[in-house]
Simulated scan of single mutants.
Amino acid sequence: MERVPITREGYESLKRELETLKSVERPKNIKAIEEARAHGDLSENAEFDAAKDRQAFIEGRISELGFKLGNAEIIDTESVSRDRAVFGCKVLLENIDTGEEVRYQLVGPDESDIEKGKISVGSPLGKAIIGKSPGEEVVLNAPGGKRCYEIVDIL
């Protein structure tokens, strides 16, 4: 099985989510199923159906997180190179057309969150950035058209 790169922070976040599901969400949902079952007729019991659906979701997510954690390869982002863009580094980009600057951290697919400035190394922009150095151009063919960036700095 192929290992999936992840930062220490991302790995710990997945571990916390898994622990919460196992120690808080699962027991809480089991109790909800028991309470709904106590209401009698299960054929028309919406609470019971909802709790069973939630249980299926929780068990599926526990399984998914276990798989992801088992295949994760933690990359030490403190010792990454700063002379070219690599997994874990933060890059400062300038849109060549608008002059607007954006900052992204290159992370694994399970950590990407554009709102937090984290993009996957497997995304089109992530793939375009990897291996580039400050001063180099990055061209992205986006749905809205071609976008050109310059790598200003690697942080």
Score class of each variant (00 low, 15 high):
Asn45Trp: 15
Lys52Gln: 11
Val121Asn: 01
Gly66Glu: 15
Asp49Pro: 02
Arg26Phe: 03
Thr98Asp: 05
Ala128Glu: 13
Thr77Ala: 01
Arg82Gln: 13
Ala56Thr: 14
Glu78Gln: 12
Tyr104Met: 10
Gly122Glu: 14
Leu140Met: 03
Ala72His: 05
Ile58Phe: 07
Glu34Ala: 15
Lys118His: 02
Phe67Ser: 10
Leu93Asp: 05
Glu44Lys: 07
Asp53Pro: 00
Ala128Tyr: 02
Leu93Gly: 12
Ala38Ile: 01
Gly135Ser: 08
Ala46Cys: 01
Arg26Trp: 05
Lys22Ser: 01
Lys116Phe: 11
Leu42Pro: 10
Leu92Lys: 15
Gly99Thr: 04
Thr7Ala: 06
Glu59Met: 12
Ala32Pro: 06
Ser43Val: 13
Leu21Asn: 02
Pro134Thr: 07
Lys127Thr: 08
Ile114Phe: 02
Leu140Tyr: 00
Phe67Ala: 11
Gly145Ser: 04
Leu69Arg: 13
Gly108Ala: 00
Gly122Leu: 08
Ser43Lys: 06
Lys132Tyr: 01
Val91Ile: 14
Glu9Val: 10
Arg147Thr: 14
Glu150Cys: 05
Arg84Ile: 14
Lys90Gln: 13
Ile62Leu: 00
Pro109Trp: 00
Ala38Lys: 11
Glu115Asn: 10
Ala56Pro: 04
Pro134Met: 04
Leu42Asp: 06
Leu92Arg: 15
Ala72Trp: 08
Ser13Asn: 03
Gly126Met: 04
Ser79Met: 12
Glu35Thr: 12
Met1Asn: 12
Pro109Ser: 05
Glu101Asp: 05
Val4Asp: 08
Val121Pro: 03
Glu78Phe: 03
Asp153Lys: 14
Asp113Pro: 01
Glu25Gly: 01
Thr20Gln: 00
Arg84Thr: 11
Ala38Asn: 09
Pro143Met: 06
Ala46Gly: 04
Leu14Ala: 10
Leu125Gly: 13
Ser43Pro: 02
Ile74Thr: 02
Leu18His: 07
Glu137Gln: 14
Phe57Thr: 09
Ile119Ser: 09
Lys116Trp: 07
Glu101Tyr: 05
Pro143Arg: 06
Asp41Ala: 04
Gln55Trp: 11
Cys148Ala: 12
Ser23Phe: 00
Leu125Lys: 13
Lys22Thr: 00
Tyr11Met: 11
Val138Asp: 03
Ala56Asn: 13
Lys132Arg: 15
Leu92Ala: 10
Asp41Thr: 05
Gly10Arg: 05
Arg84Cys: 15
Thr77Cys: 07
Val121Met: 09
Lys31Tyr: 05
Ala85Thr: 06
Ile114Pro: 04
